Amino acid sequence: MLRYENKTSAFSTFLLDIDKLMEEGLTPVFGLEDVGGYGRALAQFLAEHGQVVKEVNPALSYAERKSHMTTQKSDSWDAECVARILLNKLNHLPVAKPNDLYWRYNNWLLEEMH
């Protein structure tokens, strides 16, 4: 399992490492559960670098977790559930589009409140 910090300075290394793992002729597809909050910067980085990024609704990953006999809550189990959804519903998942207008508006509201 690969682990990286969720910060923009780590994203290039992440993408280079993924590229090294890819067999010739294959194209990675990234599934992210959160493209508006913590996952927004990664989604934006990947999209700007020509990667396919699909948005996985948190309700789908929750249902996937609950569909197994042993339910657990951890980052690695969440990632596996998102990967299962990505594999099973690839053609039905929307392309991730981090909404900068929404992001800017929320940041403006936070600044106005302080």
Score class of each variant (00 low, 15 high):
Glu112Ala: 05
His49Phe: 01
Glu80Ile: 08
Asn106Tyr: 04
Arg104Cys: 06
Phe30Ser: 02
Glu33Ser: 06
Lys97Cys: 10
Ser74Leu: 05
Val29Gln: 05
Ser67Arg: 11
Tyr4Arg: 08
Trp103Asn: 06
Lys20Leu: 12
Trp103Arg: 09
Leu21Trp: 04
Leu15Gly: 07
Tyr38Asp: 11
Asn6Asp: 12
Lys66Asp: 12
Asn106Val: 10
Pro98Cys: 03
Leu32Cys: 11
Leu26Arg: 13
Glu55Phe: 05
Met113Gly: 00
Glu33Tyr: 02
Ser74Tyr: 01
Leu90His: 14
Asp34Phe: 07
Ala79Pro: 04
Asn6Ser: 13
Gly37Phe: 10
Met69His: 08
Tyr105Arg: 01
Lys97Gly: 02
Asp17Val: 08
Thr71Trp: 08
Leu42Val: 07
Tyr62Pro: 00
Met69Trp: 02
Asn88Phe: 04
Tyr38Phe: 14
Lys7Thr: 13
Glu111Gln: 10
Asp17Arg: 10
Leu87Ile: 13
Pro98Val: 04
Ala96Phe: 00
Val53Leu: 03
Ala79Asn: 00
Leu21Pro: 02
Trp108Ala: 02
Thr70Phe: 12
Glu48Thr: 14
Tyr102Cys: 04
Thr70Gln: 09
Pro28Gly: 01
Tyr38Ala: 15
Glu64Arg: 11
Ala79Lys: 02
Tyr4Gln: 14
Lys20Arg: 15
Tyr4His: 13
Tyr102Met: 09
Lys89Val: 00
